[in-house]
Amino acid sequence: MIELAGVSRTFRTRSGDIEALRGIDLTVAEGEFLAVIGRSGCGKSTLLRLLAGLLPPTDGTVLVGGTAVTRPRRDVALMFQRPALLPWRSVLANVLLPVEMHGGRRAPHRERACQLLDAVGLAGFHKRLPHELSGGMQQRVALCRALIQQPKVLLMDEPFSALDALTREELAGQLQQVHMDVKPTTVFVTHSIQEAVLLADRVAVLSERPGRVRHVLTVDIPRPRSFGRNAHLADVATCVAELTDLLHDTDAPTPMHIT
């Protein structure tokens, strides 16, 4: 579904060039859940923006569904770290925004929007304004907005990182459910090793800047998975330990930055 071949991205700034990504090769199969993990500033958001068609690569090819990505596509949905809801629109109207932007009529999608909201526990909140909701609830609205157009690809940039620990776990559980139900191909950027192991089929670990794929770990634990006590604690611990080592590994060929 997604193919990245030799993808690099360099930003030209006044204070010199910043090489954010170098030579990324990655493929994500249809319906697969790929987590991307790495230090801040290693180019994770840049990677997603390349996939979303918000940014062209300086080198290499980015294919989604077999065609080169040149601009944002309707079947690719994006979810950010912040909910980015329109504060003057009700929860329901926010969820229906993509339908409107794509020139569709809202009425036929209204029922689906309500179902999505109900599924993430926002049944009584359709008419509320975003500021009346907690951060976790707002992020759930953003999730529903991403899902309203039934995207083939779901791109998520640290979507839970601004939330408290309990809310994160709850939302990660709901995302797992959504993924099991509708199976969008998902690329999920996160800082949290636990989240990656809970959700992903594979975890790509990026090196420090310039971001390169250091390793791709397959998480072979049956779903549904859970954070708490479960039958696969040993497997979870192995994956977590391996990812922790990879993230803290300083022997890897990345330049040291002394500032």
Binding site: L54, P72, R73, R74, L78, F80, R82, A84, L86, H102
Partner: peptide, 10 residues
């Protein structure tokens, strides 16, 4: 982020 949202929705 709202600008980026609008762009991502074409």
């Amino acid at each position: 982020d709202l600008g980026e949202l609008a762009r991502s929705l074409s």
